[in-house]
């Protein structure tokens, strides 16, 4: 189990789902893959497929249609899984909190492990969010990061 627990911390594969965000955070999630930030240094890979995902990165407020999609995607992820809400809207609904088609933050639909604030959240903050998720996982597993 030791080697698996360690490996989990070294290889978090992420999937990004855009609820109905403004694109700001989405593009920042993508930007964190690129040479300046190079998220792959930490073994983080954007898989784009819930079946291969460890960390679900969600941006944007949940609206009435994407709530279903988000729930479906979350259910398809194999355990252990973490959810990171990136950006103010995904935390609380942000500026869209009173729009008629917006339900609110991501935690209305799926449990969230790490909240990354910002409008838009910077790539550094997103990477930091993933690392925080790993720390949480490490604590749960009782191993050192």
């Amino acid at each position: 189990m030791g080697i698996i627990a360690t490996s989990r911390l070294k290889s978090p594969w992420i999937m990004h789902f855009d609820n109905s965000s403004c694109n700001g955070c989405d593009i920042e999630v993508l930007a964190s893959l690129t040479p300046l930030y190079d998220i792959e240094r930490f073994g983080i890979v954007n898989m784009g497929n819930p079946k291969h995902t460890d960390v679900l990165v969600v941006t944007g407020p949940v609206n009435r249609r994407t709530a279903r999609v988000l729930k479906n995607l979350y259910d398809q992820i194999a355990d252990p899984k973490m959810v990171i809400a990136v950006g103010t809207c995904s935390i609380s609904g942000g500026v869209f909190h009173n729009c008629y088609n917006v339900l609110g933050g991501v935690d209305k639909v799926v449990p969230v492990d790490v909240y990354v604030p910002g409008c838009a959240a910077r790539p550094e903050a997103i990477i930091d969010g993933v690392v925080m998720a790993l720390q949480k996982l490490a604590k749960l597993q009782g191993v050192a990061l």
Binding site: F17, N49, R68, V69, L70, N72, L73, D75, Q76
Partner: peptide, 20 residues
């Protein structure tokens, strides 16, 4: 068993092959 990947739009559980 979990339903197959249908871009997040599968309608129901493992026994369906419908999507929204």
């Amino acid at each position: 068993l979990r339903p197959v990947y249908m871009c997040g739009e599968q309608a129901g559980g493992t026994d369906t092959d419908e999507w929204y």
